[in-house]
Design a binder for these strands. Structure first.
Ligand code: SF4
Ligand code: SF4
Lengths: 136, 136
DNA sequence: TTAATTACAGACTTCACATATCCATGATAG
DNA sequence: CTATCATGGATATGTGAAGTCTGTAATTAA
């Protein structure tokens, strides 16, 4: 029961892109160096963000990844859902039983967490701090 | 990023014990039959609950597992912590950086879920419904 | 047109952990 | 003493996370 490291990488990358210039694409090479993760692996993760419509990519020289459209609205939950999927944390027996009290409680608790994550936008944190360090 | 099946078993078992008589110990044999899980495996899970002080066990004939003390106060979170552990869902780089905004937000969101789980007691749900079915 | 650069997709490996199973041991009631 | 019951350790087994490798496609610069 842990968030994957991929989610961590995605959050850091998005934070970094928000703090940097949103105009020019940034190659996965430079994005990976700040986080000590291999470029090919980070690329896999960022492709998920592309498919989720959160960012856009450009092949070829001077290509890379770039924010698009209404990037100010992107929340923590958007990124987490793009990377981890949207399935419930509590999948008992596959079927959703709306009458089950255990099930209801677990979904309700998860919803409380998602509510918090949905109401926090990356851009707000990026504004509050030029956050580029990565300790370890 | 899923709750383990062990947590599911523990929740069902506790719900069952609350609905049944709290006086007599119930053997893991009968507890397991209701959930279609092997007795030995369920025993391992229940031992965690014993060590967490949520229930008590009695060896020998007519032994088994039984609620103890202030069992009315047991919350969802108590059981989940006993089974899954109390570590944070978001463990980046091991160290807790209180100044990191990403870290703060993730902890805050997790706290919202735990708050909900802490404020829901098993006994309340057991009262509302004699809940012993297990579909699959 | 060619070469360099970049993202993308698939196969693959490795590793950690969840999910058990089996068996020996210990405790306890009758 | 014996049947019953929990506990602990060792041991599979399966699944998903984490990461690597390599070829392919797209795009730009020369
Ligand atoms: S009884 Fe409720 S919690 Fe248990 S498996 Fe069914 S729906 Fe899920
Ligand atoms: S989220 Fe913050 S504390 Fe955690 S690794 Fe990233 S920068 Fe460090």
């Amino acid at each position: 029961m842990k968030y994957s490291k991929a989610t961590n990488y995605a959050l850091h990358t998005m934070m970094h892109m928000m703090a940097a210039s949103p105009d020019k694409p940034i190659g996965v090479q430079s994005l990976s160096e700040a986080q000590r993760v291999s470029p090919t692996y980070l690329s896999k993760i960022l492709t998920k963000l592309v498919k989720a419509g959160l960012i856009e990519s450009a092949s070829g020289a001077n290509g890379g990844y770039r924010l698009k459209g209404r990037y100010e609205d992107i929340s923590f939950l958007d990124i987490i859902h793009a990377v981890e999927g949207t399935a419930s944390l509590f999948d008992c027996c596959g079927s959703v039983n709306s009458e089950c009290l255990i099930h209801q409680e677990m979904l309700s608790a998860e919803a409380a967490m998602e509510e918090k994550l949905r109401n926090t936008r990356i851009i707000d944190l990026a504004k509050r701090l030029e956050h580029s360090h990565r300790h370890g």
